[in-house]
Amino acid sequence: MLKDITLGQFFPIDSPLHRMDPRTKILLLILHIVAIFLANNTAGYVLVTLFTLMIMLLSRVPLKMYFRGLKPILFVIIFTAVLNIFLTPGTKIELFNYETPMTWEGLVLAGKMALRLVLLIITSSALTYTTSPIILTDGIEKLLSPFAKLGLPTYELAMMMSIAIRFIPTLIEETDKIMKAQKARGADFESGSVIRRVKALAPMLIPLFISAFRRADELAVAMESRCYQGGSKRTRLNEIHFASVDYVAAAIFLLFFAALITLRILL
């Protein structure tokens, strides 16, 4: 299960999407999410789906990765779909002459919601697959920079984020190790009442926290040894800047967005 979490994993290959400026990608992602919710008719849905498919192909990330990324939220998708099917008022569906509590309207709504969720996850994954976390935080930091004047510590926030991302795999590995060790001593994480299970977590969480604090301590010393002084004086290995690929992407996106709005108004 822990291994299925692909969101936040970077795919170090080359593609037009990889070459885009992170700021462009973040802004377009936000617009794309708006677009997903703007679509309100069949033509609109088809357009958004096709556009998302194009993004997936342009990223050159194996399609398999996108589907693996959907796995952890499959439950949420199914759950909301079931709720929609049963709880939406409307014409009841008849099966073998029996009236079921499901409705046609619910079925349609469930389909729409599921599609929206899937598209949402896929486009967000497209951002993280094609942007290294450091560049991504760089982009966020630049986008937030107007707020720095208001006293928001944008640089420090970005650094915190990228370190958190860096240590996710390390801590997952560590959790796995501690769990196994405690299991070897007869710990049982899987059975019993909720209270028992929560209690059973202590032997795992305490060593995990201790180790996380130790890591944080050592990392801070190592960062200081490498002259980390915070603040804005830093330069970058890869300074981000807008290039032609960004302008092309923005233009294509605006066309798509215009088409979508036209569809919404006309149909």
Binding site: S132, I134, S162, R166, T170, R214, R215, E218, L219, A222
Partner: peptide, 12 residues
């Protein structure tokens, strides 16, 4: 330092 994991800050 001793522990290589605890001195690397970046993901690449």
């Amino acid at each position: 330092f001793q522990n290589p994991d605890n001195q690397l800050v970046a993901t690449v």
